[in-house]
């Protein structure tokens, strides 16, 4: 009839009351124990990451040796290391890296400044917020490489074209993340800022940016990754610009010559720089800011 089942009405069982005196702490033994050396070393993030890295290298080396892959197609780790040394000696690797990094950093820096201006405007005037969100929706999915032919037509075969498309690849990702981060800043913290007399730019610098730093940083990371892809992609597709080639050009040139070891060397350098930037810069900044402040774990 009814889905609700009748439960028998029981009273709680009457029991005597209990009172105890806690025994002396000295009799309990271990209450706090320092972690062992191994446990502590394993708790260091970099140690765990390095272990993973070493594992990859071992698998790579073992695979190429056991399966007896021709080095022309898939050089081993040791071959690649030798190739990298060769690259620095015979292939002007340092100059190539510095060319790539210079263009990359210029584009990235200009992109960050542009994003900062856009987001500041968007958080002050509503029209700019609309412009920013619409522009982001339009341009974020547009690959920068697709703009390179146009950029070269307009600005010629130079660094300027590269910087132009790099800025395009950075600005939208960074601006979008920062803007979303700013919108997520708690109303309480906003009121605290206003209560103590902060307005306009000082409010953004002292409240919005630190409060949204986790998202701002993640936007900067995404922007950095986009910039790298754009940079290498541009060099691969269009070869060296008038002033000389970078890492992408190194890969392209050597693949044309079927010098696969040098292709690997180029790829390996890109990975190495990426890992270095991730750990030496982004991770360090995170450790000293958002993690230290308990805003990210």
């Amino acid at each position: 009839m009814s889905a609700v089942r009748e439960r028998p009405r029981t009273d709680p069982v009457p029991r005597p009351e209990i009172e105890r005196t806690p025994i002396d702490v000295r009799h309990i033994g271990q209450i706090e124990r320092p972690l062992s050396g191994i446990e502590r070393v394993w708790n260091v993030q970099i140690v765990r990451n390095l272990t993973v890295l070493v594992m990859f290298v071992v698998i790579w080396e073992a695979y190429t040796r056991i399966a007896d892959i021709p080095p022309l197609l898939f050089p081993s780790f040791t071959d690649t290391c030798v190739a990298i040394v060769d690259a620095f000696r015979d292939h002007r690797m340092l100059a190539k890296i510095s060319f790539t990094l210079t263009s990359l950093l210029t584009g990235y820096a200009v992109g960050l400044v542009a994003a900062a201006v856009l987001v500041s405007a968007a958080s002050i005037w509503r029209v700019w917020a609309d412009i920013l969100t619409t522009a982001t929706a339009m341009f974020n999915p547009l690959p920068s490489i697709a703009l390179l032919p146009l950029a070269m037509l307009w600005f010629g075969l130079g660094t300027f074209s590269l910087v132009f498309i790099l800025v395009h690849s950075v600005v939208w990702a960074v601006a979008l993340n920062a803007y979303v981060g700013f919108q997520g800043v708690s109303p309480t913290q906003r009121m605290i800022g206003h209560n103590y007399g902060l307005r306009g730019v000082m409010f953004a610098i002292k409240i919005l940016i630190p409060a949204a730093l986790a998202t701002v940083l993640s936007g900067m990371k995404i922007g950095w990754a986009f910039a790298w892809r754009t940079m290498i992609g541009a060099e691969l597709v269009f070869g060296a610009t008038a002033r000389g080639g970078g890492l992408g050009w190194h890969i392209f040139e050597n693949s044309e010559l079927l010098n696969i070891r040098q292709v690997f060397a180029g790829l390996f350098m890109i990975i190495l720089i990426g890992v270095l930037v991730e750990y030496a810069i982004f991770r360090t900044v995170e450790l000293r800011t958002v993690r230290r402040w308990g805003m990210q774990r």
């Binding site: 708690s186 309480t188 913290q189 605290i192 630190p210 409060a211 730093l213 402040w293």
Partner: peptide
Amino acid sequence: FQEFDQLLPW
């Protein structure tokens, strides 16, 4: 405020 995030975490 009532909210604990009134202290600036940074």
